[in-house]
Design a binder for these strands. Sequence first.
DNA 1: GACGATTATGAACACCGTGTTCGGTATCGA
DNA 2: TCGATACCGAACACGGTGTTCATAATCGTC
Lengths: 194, 194
Amino acid sequence: MTEIDRRVRRTRGNLSYALLELMVEKGYDAITIQDLLDRANVGRTTFYDHYRDKDDLLVEGLKNLRSFLREHQRAAIARTGPLRDRALGFSLAMFEHAGEQRALFRAIVGRRAGTIVMQHVRRMFQELVRDDLAALGVRGTEVPVEAIVEFAVGSLMSILMWWADLRSNVPDAAHADAMFRRLTIPGILAAVGR
Amino acid sequence: MTEIDRRVRRTRGNLSYALLELMVEKGYDAITIQDLLDRANVGRTTFYDHYRDKDDLLVEGLKNLRSFLREHQRAAIARTGPLRDRALGFSLAMFEHAGEQRALFRAIVGRRAGTIVMQHVRRMFQELVRDDLAALGVRGTEVPVEAIVEFAVGSLMSILMWWADLRSNVPDAAHADAMFRRLTIPGILAAVGR
DNA sequence: GACGATTATGAACACCGTGTTCGGTATCGA
DNA sequence: TCGATACCGAACACGGTGTTCATAATCGTC
């Protein structure tokens, strides 16, 4: 019931796809509404019927990534083992996913990506990490939990960005993830005193 | 010799000061060239005689911070002691400096700051950290040095941002710096295998 | 397959911010 | 005092945004 009109699906789909293509080609910031319309074959009025602005369109696209990571996170938390293995359990999935679609990924999180995109991604990671630490019972004693969250997110973003922009001698996803964990987890353990 | 014309100094000074004021008031992104001209009492033409655009003006302002940090860095490297104490020796100075001018600092590196500002600050930190690790003879074995640099920068930016935006229970600069180091240094040591 | 409702269209428009041009004026340093 | 240098503001072209309106295409349904 209340199925979405086929025309609406078509319009939205075309616009989302056009956005991704253009992000890869010229970077988010440089994309103009007119670019999107031309690429997606959609009228100007139509665009504004569906979205408030470019950002609005972007957010819709990021929802997929979010649910994907949430799923992997759940699995890792449910596992058994030491904290150092279970924490931030979505990271490998993130690196693997990124590795599969490097071009798109570079457009999302690479140097050229543009701030707004990064902000949304960052916010997404914050939620994930916060829930992760909470689920594992990590408590801030001397270092507040929020500081630990920010630390982990900053670290993840940095390594992802670095990795996404590498052009030669690119380590595979598993190695990149291992580096991230090796750099990040010790600090978390030190901060919570375990 | 070749002293700079008094009028030039006046114009540049007024513009720089106006930029800082306006950043605090409304955030970098929202500032318009016209805002700057009105605040600084400078003609439109004059502005473009001195700077290419808003960014250009910003960069000039950040040069002070840069040289300030460079100085503290040199001092820390020259010290004796274990790596864990000498590395990233400018961090305390950074936190202290930030603590003294919170409002301005929040405008530069807080959530409202705007991407361009952040990018410049980030680039500045990258240089500093890269030189720091090089001066201390840190070599990447399994984890490339660049990855370590990115990690440290990401971590520093995160903690600074978090700290800058805190509204209550704000730890002092020394504590904030201690948290940063406690979170970050273990990962670096783990990565280089010492 | 016809018909009413919904959605798409594109041209025109007002608005705002950017960066440039120009002729004229004020201030500097010597 | 005088030549060089810096400043000024008004006007302009340009490009991107988001809105409007009347018209056309497409949909779901009976």
